[in-house]
Design a protein around this nucleic acid. Structure first.
Lengths: 207, 207, 207, 207
DNA sequence: TATGAATGAGCGTTCATTCAT
DNA sequence: GATGAATGAACGCTCATTCAT
């Protein structure tokens, strides 16, 4: 559904596009975008090198499509996770927990989003990264809502708070991912950080 | 002074090594490590391609040496900035402000540290990045000190708080750098984030 | 069939590997291994530079594979040439004549074996050159047989005699090849040398 | 004294040219001409890289000059060795023995002459190699003398016999040198080969 | 659709040679 | 003369992409 990749008329359920994306995720996570070889991805996907170009315009497009696809999943899952929550603080807590939980269940996705994302913003200046913008906007709007409700203070612009929160979590995930998931418990750490940020954002009761 | 680069015996003050590092910083910042061409760096430094290899073992070594060199500057500058500050909260504020100030004065350095650093942890598993570890340790020890003083609460382990704080700042810097330094005022944003995090870390007086 | 070169699965009879070997032989003969450019070989073979690396691991591997391939031909042809001959003296004469005949029909092969072979023994200490060892063993075993038959005297160890004989022929071929094949008639010269060596090896009748 | 190398007006007995030649011989023998680095030679000679170019025009010239120099020594030593010998057979025996003895005392010289010589004939078509031609002429003239005396038969042209003899010895030396001088006793082997060739060249008494 | 052999532009690195000191 | 830092042309090899089958 992205604007980037060709979608060849394929037999229903052939799932080749998805297999290629999954393989790309794995290889990008393991080696990094620039170190990853298209032929490695093809092999991991069980297809011929050329087949990749039936589904994606280029290696760049494969990365972008992977972002789009995974960020869509992330956004959807976060949407669902937030459904039960009432009030900005609870929503934020939900968000943080759901995001880290997601990352801990899909470390390769986390690695690609966390590390390769930054690259991409550099090497593809033309790529807007709309889903990531969505993601940030979603987070910011929760904070904004809290500021309007009066549960969160308004000293800091919501987009900046959102960005910092994402940065804090992202760095945590990076440390976790690079440590092989063994250095600490990511969900517990996320709770600590969530508490800290939330406390930092709380409206002062007697103000 | 790094263990990585050869330093050919040469007339004092020739400054060629420094010129190459500066050129590398510029080019890595503009294009990213993998997209940067050694010949571009050479041209930017005003030396021949081969000259780079008199001072650095390889392109990789050039990146690592650049990290080491710049992180040393960062660590030293932060050291100095902290000298006047008393108490963990003031020190943290100083740290944040100094770091962002530094970054806003040297956006290329910020870009390289911020973006290429992460790469490096991936593509050079063997590289320890000791100066960055130093940097994080320094930050963590301020927080720890606050926890021992009682000015900061102890609900979150200091290394995790430090890492999150760095992540928040780093993400902010990334947004700022990618926006060409024009989207918002980095120092003001850093103050906001500093306030937020500090409030989040403050010991609750009436608990 | 060598252990050195990859053989990509391809349509039968594509013969690309052979064309590359032939081109390499030509270029190595004309310029020498170190002066030969991979791109020259590719051009001579009518393939792209990269194609060579589908069939051979490296330029070194190309040389080694060429040796193996040509020495196999030489050994096979000598085998055939010896079939009709009875007794060591006749066999030796056959051997010498067949070897020089072969060389005069394939001067490039001769040049590569004669000149580049020696290089290789130096610059690739790890390369055993098993086919050349075969070749020498074959020659030595003819002499040994003659010594056991009593037609050749036993004052000189067969491997040393074989090596010298090869050296004598090789030097002759070198002179012939460097002279562009025009200075003298190589087959006639080989007969002279064959007679000389055979006379030198003959058992003394009245001893 | 060669036509190839510059001879800077140097302090008497500075011996720098000789030291460079000795170093070149060592390095060429150890690594081969193309693998040898000028800087290695400089280091081995205890001079700066640039200094080599005060004495020799180029790396090629260094090799050529080394040949000239060493072949001159060889020719002189052979001259001396032949002084006492009377008659072609005795002279040939002397020659062979002296040549191998020389080689066993100066294996690096042998290696360079034996292996690098052939290269040079290829990569420097313009280089005549006059001293080596001298060497061969000297050998041929002994044989010719024997043929005129009647002690050696005339079935084979002297230059061809000379060339073969050299090839036989050269191959023997190569095997010996590549075997690290440990596989067999070169002087004994040379005697065997000498006997064989001499017997092969002897005029048949009753013909 | 799918394949994978073939392509060839492009780059990191080397090293013989130069020349300012 | 002697030095050795600097040069930059040159080359082996890689790998994203194409296209004949």
């Amino acid at each position: 559904m992205t604007a980037h990749s060709d979608t060849p008329a394929r037999g229903p359920g052939s799932g080749k596009r998805e297999r290629i994306l999954a393989a790309a995720e794995e290889v990008f996570a393991a080696r990094g975008f620039f170190q990853a070889r298209v032929s490695e991805i093809a092999k991991a996907a069980g297809v011929a090198d050329g087949t990749i170009y039936l589904y994606f315009k280029s290696k760049d497009d494969l990365l972008i499509s992977l972002f789009e696809d995974r960020m869509e999943l992330v956004n959807n899952e976060l949407e669902t996770a937030l459904e039960g929550a009432e009030g900005a603080p609870a929503k934020l807590r939900c968000f943080i927990r759901a995001y880290c939980d997601l990352a801990s269940r899909h470390p390769n996705t986390a690695e690609v989003i966390t590390i390769e994302l930054r690259q991409s913003s550099k090497f593809m200046k033309e790529y807007d990264n709309p889903r990531f913008a969505d993601f940030l906007r979603r987070l910011a709007s929760i904070i904004e809502q809290g500021q309007q409700e009066g549960t969160l203070h308004s000293e800091i612009p919501a987009p900046i708070a959102a960005r910092s929160l994402f940065g804090a979590l992202d760095e945590l995930l990076l440390a976790w991912v690079l440590g092989g998931g063994e250095k600490f418990d990511i969900v517990r750490a996320a709770d600590w950080v969530g508490d800290m940020i939330l406390k930092g954002l709380e409206a002062r009761r007697n103000q």
